[in-house]
Nucleic acid binder design. Structure first.
Lengths: 145, 145
DNA sequence: AGCGAATTCATCCTTTCGGGTGAAGGCTTT
DNA sequence: AAAGCCTTCACCCGAAAGGATGAATTCGCT
């Protein structure tokens, strides 16, 4: 979250700079105000869409590999029984990929503290003490692949 | 999709109307251009974010799939190629079971420092940075079950 | 006997984890 | 409106993990 704001802020600064630059360099004021506003609107719409995408992007990596597999089915009932939320599950997935809390935070666009909260709750719900055990147990319970 | 575009268009129209209205009613031109632009930027950023969310929140289906390897066999050649020693391998195994360094030390009857040395060397040889990654990579390489 | 690898342990230091607590805002249900 | 859960974030603190380096001992092999 903090990172996203920072990036957005930087982009904003750059854009403002560009606008002022254009304003003084090419006398944009001479152009119609509507055109000016339109440009700004378009740019920020795109920026907004980008931010929106970043904030909700979820990489769905499909591992394709042959071999007969006894289909792993997403046991939602099991998740609910343990009271694991969607966000916590996302953290669990990334955790199982070997990412550090900071890396998970960056990927989910939340703060490190948030990830720590989620992981702590995860450990409680999975009744484990460490992330390595959480990964193990999650695999045993077929919560993750 | 279509609905989103329509709503976006309507919102756009309303905004334009509002802007023109403000412009003529309250002489917004007298306000600083920066303020005017800022408002537009903010509004369209929000609109963009909203649109981005609408366009992507359709359905994030997570396709998970397990891939189990046929029979696992101890590939000693692979171990040697990586230069992983017996002791390091033992540490790796216990590590993969979710044990802490201290627990591994107790189980192997060595000191904590020794385990840390082994694990550090393991990380170097497996070219990873954390134990979770080491476990992953070891499984990929079929070094462990 | 000697060389090299493996094993063991240590110290110092930094980073990462994890526990505990509090809190704010959003969303849902009652 | 109130209650409850989810999500987010913050702060503090201690434990665990990891990096760098040095060193002693043992073991296998020539």
């Amino acid at each position: 979250m903090k990172q996203t704001i920072i990036i957005y802020g930087l982009a904003l600064a750059v854009l403002i700079f560009l606008l002022k630059f254009l304003e003084y360099r090419f006398f944009v004021r001479d152009l119609s105000l509507e055109f000016y506003l339109g440009s700004v609107a378009i740019v920020f719409t795109v920026l907004g869409i980008w931010a929106g995408l970043r904030l909700t992007s979820k990489k769905t990596v499909v591992i394709t590999q042959t071999v007969i597999q006894p289909d792993f089915q997403f046991d939602l009932a099991r998740l609910e029984k343990l009271g694991i939320s969607k966000r916590e599950y996302e953290v669990l997935e990334l955790m199982a990929k070997g990412l550090s809390n900071q890396e998970i935070a960056d990927r989910l666009f939340v703060s490190l503290n948030t990830v720590k909260t989620h992981s702590s709750n995860l450990f409680l719900k999975l009744e484990v003490k460490r992330r390595t055990q959480a990964i193990q147990k999650a695999k045993e319970l077929q919560l993750i692949a």
